[in-house]
Nucleic acid binder design. Structure first.
Lengths: 147, 147
DNA sequence: TCCGTGAGTTGTACTGTGCAACCAGGAGAA
DNA sequence: TTCTCCTGGTTGCACAGTACAACTCACGGA
């Protein structure tokens, strides 16, 4: 059955991609790990959020997020603002430096992808993008895992 | 421009996938890390190879591969056979147990992907698979990185 | 007022990884 | 032959990322 074979190919290729991603992420942007990058991106997108939200969103342990956040703060890429309503909460915000680094790394990544996707017909690009969105939007097996 | 937006989406979604992959891989198949899985898969596919080949193929340090291999051997999933021609070389082979575990994990992963892709029209599946293959086949920036 | 709950930190341990130093076997040059 | 260089592999060390468990502090309801 052709569909079965396609599923197998998708499985293999996605795995291949995942295996490479972290390694090359480290090499391409030593200034920001893949995790840091996604955390910063999330903060930018949401215009600030709590560490707990990050942990839930990325299915990471809160201790892990705590340490990542601490590192990002040490690097002056984010800042903590105490929530005035609930003193347990610290709202995380990008600093200007964080915004700048994020933009730069994003641009680097974009460039890499653009290069990689150069020559693809626009129709294929949009379809590929759509497939990926549809794939990632699926939320089964692990609850609270989302992107 | 629409193509630019598609590239951005692809970048974002592939990143999302990569970020999740390791975490869920660990959760879904505690018996085999993503790396171990790919190494075993490679051994099966090639019907045995050297540690150096694995290192080159996956752009890993030889020390990393050495340790992974040692762990897989301890777990009786692979065995080393001394090359009779060159005594520096150990050719790695799957054991029966390794083949069995690999098949089982592969089946689990397949099932997860099948579930995730259930309901996709066959045409979309084959096109998606094709796009991924085309994407991963691109070999720029990092030489000797392949899947 | 007290107890349970939620946010966040810290101690500990483990995995995966790379780099550098090392050992051992092979291959060619003096 | 012997010396030197290369190659395959291991080991010591360091570090990032992660989880789990125990903790502190703040909130909120009984």
């Amino acid at each position: 059955m052709r569909a079965d074979q396609a599923v197998e190919t998708i499985q293999r290729e996605m795995t291949t991609f995942a295996r490479r991603a972290r390694a090359s992420a480290g090499r391409l942007h030593p200034e920001l790990s893949l995790v840091s990058y996604t955390l910063l991106g999330h903060l930018e997108e949401r215009d600030g959020c709590r560490a707990t939200d990050l942990a839930a969103h990325y299915a990471l342990d809160k201790s892990t997020v705590s340490r990542q956040v601490a590192a990002l703060e040490r690097a002056d890429l984010i800042e903590r603002r105490l929530d005035t309503e609930d003193h347990r909460v610290q709202v995380l915000h990008l600093t200007d430096a964080g915004r700048r680094i994020l933009a730069q790394v994003t641009e680097n990544r974009q460039a890499a992808f653009r290069e990689r996707l150069a020559g693809w017909p626009e129709e294929d690009l949009t379809r590929f993008a759509g497939y990926l969105e549809r794939y990632n939007a699926w939320s089964g097996e692990v609850p609270a895992e989302e992107g």
